[in-house]
Design a protein around this nucleic acid. Structure first.
Lengths: 147, 147
DNA sequence: AATGATAGTTTAGGGGCTAAACCATTTTCC
DNA sequence: GGAAAATGGTTTAGCCCCTAAACTATCATT
């Protein structure tokens, strides 16, 4: 096996599979103690789309509809989202409340602070550029590779 | 806020927080249906250290000891690891069985195949090099930044 | 020998997931 | 127009993971 592939396997697992959880914990964002990553992602997608159905959210998040039902149920209880009824009586459109928007902004702000600090301490300018390039690429791959 | 930081926040979340699960699913490794990422990581660390205590595993994985107890319980039941008793009757050293070693090797082989295919289709040689550089950096950061 | 510390397990409760079952509503077909 | 099929979302059932307290056996200290 190509040594590079072998190394890639190790790094891939270390960073993507096993490192993520550690990063989330080290950011030490109080909001992330109250809202799970799954709930945060739901907020993000709802915010991005403006108004969205549960079905679409399930597709975007790649999970079963009942998982979405459970997530949105909690977000509704926490009043971070609200329902807008459509003509189709079966359907519910979800949108962010002001509180939901605040949570998203605050969460991003804290993560930005964390990254800014991390980057200023451990990464030089050129590496930041490379980081962005590679992550843009990874993001693109994840969106196209049947992922 | 620096636009680059803003972009980094988005990409970071997309790739590390929300993309990982999708990648795991798209690799389509049958072993990963039988063994969770948490169990796989335990196998990996046990394999790397040769013999290891639950306490050390808890530290390396950054989880509570009861989580480790549950993980190793399942791995024992599946006969992927076995216990070696020490002089300290409270303590148990864990080591891989041959079956455990096989699972690790097979899992890595499948992931290597996946990455090789991915890289040959969507990434050029220079990008592979950059990918490795950046991931080495990320891996190093995760090991030192109180992560 | 009694007390405190330690290693690991079990218990309790919270989060997540899949998928079937369920219910109301809409669409399709005859 | 009415019955059957499809659809949107919720609830139920069962499995997984986590944290942390409670618990038990063993070791170390006083």
């Amino acid at each position: 096996m190509d040594m590079r592939i072998k190394e890639a396997v190790e790094l891939f697992q270390e960073v993507l599979f096993y490192g993520t959880e550690r990063v989330i914990r080290s950011v030490d964002n109080p909001l992330w103690e109250e809202f799970s990553p799954e709930q945060m992602q739901s907020l993000k997608l709802i915010g991005k789309e403006g108004r969205i159905t549960s079905a679409r959210l399930a597709v975007l998040q790649g999970v079963h509809k009942s998982a979405v039902s459970n997530r949105t149920k909690k977000l509704l209880q926490k009043e971070l989202i609200q329902v807008v009824q459509t003509a189709d009586r079966r359907e519910k459109l979800l949108e962010l409340t002001d509180a939901g928007k605040s949570v998203l902004e605050e969460s991003d702000r804290i993560l930005a602070e964390y990254l800014e600090k991390l980057m200023s301490e451990q990464v030089d300018d050129q590496e930041i550029e490379q980081f962005l390039v590679i992550f843009r690429k990874l993001s693109a791959i994840m969106k196209t590779d049947g992922v």
